[in-house]
């Protein structure tokens, strides 16, 4: 068993109305290696966050439920763990940071005591030790003047600083995996660049594997070697970022890449558009979920769900029409 984390055939179902169920994550499978950074990219409702929450055992139940699948962490299925043992993994072996750090921090405690609490939960140390480790960790996430900062409250910090605190708490127990769910979406571009650089360098130093969830293909390019593209709950394409961007195999990936105005796009040239909108998961078309928006569709596409096929060079694509790798 080489992979640090292996998700197999994960289906997470939500109840959205009387007798209406949606598969927010639908037969999702991938592996994450030790020290690797893997990006999951997709638009709203693509299932990227639900996949992350499923790995963390944080799917709200009801309305959500993991219908089937396995989540193997070092070969052990996390879905079979007791809640008590799962708590020993969550936050300890697998840390997580979220999009909006303000809502993840408790407004009435100082950040020092919140970091210390994270340390005390997962380590057998004294309060004083936890406190000095908190200061040490704040230094590592490059927060200036940490001795003073531990005494401040979340509202006294900027968004970028709060995200640094979240990273620092997630790293308090030296996890093997850091799950980052849109950690820079709420931040300004220059601050986003700083946080991305911080995650990159910390992951490298500590050999932490990162599962990085984002909607921004530009961010993917900067942070990950390998990426998964999700659409309507399913993985549509997976592969090394360089090849994936240079020669996308799935028509959806192709469309997304063409639709973004790049710095090199000439002014005023009409942008490529993917027609239509992201489908409602409770009313998916038969067959491939992308069929109604796909420019290349053929008769077969409306008949069944295209399986994720390996197309050489570590690339996989769920499209009936996609052919061979490079």
């Amino acid at each position: 068993m080489g992979a640090l984390l292996e998700v197999r055939d994960l289906t997470t179902r939500f109840r959205v109305g009387r007798r209406v169920f949606i598969n927010a994550a639908d037969h999702v499978g991938f592996t994450l290696d030790e020290g690797e950074t893997l990006a999951i990219v997709g638009e709203s409702g693509s299932g990227k966050s639900v996949t992350a929450l499923s790995v963390m055992g944080l799917v709200p139940n009801p309305p959500g439920r993991i219908e089937h699948g396995e989540i193997l962490f070092r070969g052990e299925d996390l879905l079979k763990l007791t809640p008590r043992r799962m708590r020993g993994v969550r936050g300890n072996k697998i840390g997580m940071i979220f999009q909006e750090p303000m809502s993840s921090l408790n407004p009435v405690f100082t950040i020092g005591s919140q970091i210390a609490e994270a340390i005390l939960t997962h380590n057998d140390v004294s309060r004083a030790e936890a406190r000095s480790r908190a200061i040490e960790l704040l230094k590592q996430v490059e927060i200036p003047d940490p001795e003073r900062r531990v005494k401040t409250y979340p509202h006294q910090m900027s968004g970028g600083m709060r995200q640094r605190v979240m990273i620092c708490m997630a790293l308090a127990s030296s996890p093997d995996i850091l799950i980052a769910d849109e950690p820079t979406t709420a931040l300004d571009v220059t601050i986003q660049a700083q946080i991305l650089e911080l995650i990159r360098s910390l992951a490298r130093e500590r050999n932490t594997a990162v599962l990085f969830i984002t909607h921004d293909l530009g961010v993917v390019a900067g942070i990950a070697r390998r990426a998964i593209v999700m659409y309507a709950g399913r993985i549509v394409e997976m592969g090394p970022v360089k090849e994936l961007f240079a020669k996308p195999l799935h028509p959806y990936t192709r469309g997304l890449l063409r639709a973004i105005p790049k710095l090199a796009t000439p002014r005023g040239q009409p942008l490529y558009t993917i027609p239509g909108i992201v489908p409602d998961l409770s009313r998916l078309p038969l067959g491939c979920a992308f069929v109604t928006r796909c420019p290349d569709r053929e008769a077969i596409c409306g008949k069944g769900k295209p399986p994720l096929r390996t197309l050489g060079d570590g690339r996989q694509c769920a499209c009936f029409l996609a052919e061979g790798g490079v």
Binding site: S158, V189, A193, L196, D216, A221, G222, F245, L257
Partner: peptide
């Protein structure tokens, strides 16, 4: 320099701004 760009898989050297606004 801080804009994440999809043409950027080569890992361009960024000019990171220090500090905050």
């Amino acid at each position: 320099s801080a804009i994440p760009d999809v043409d950027d898989t080569a890992g361009r050297e960024r000019q990171l701004l220090r500090g905050e606004i």
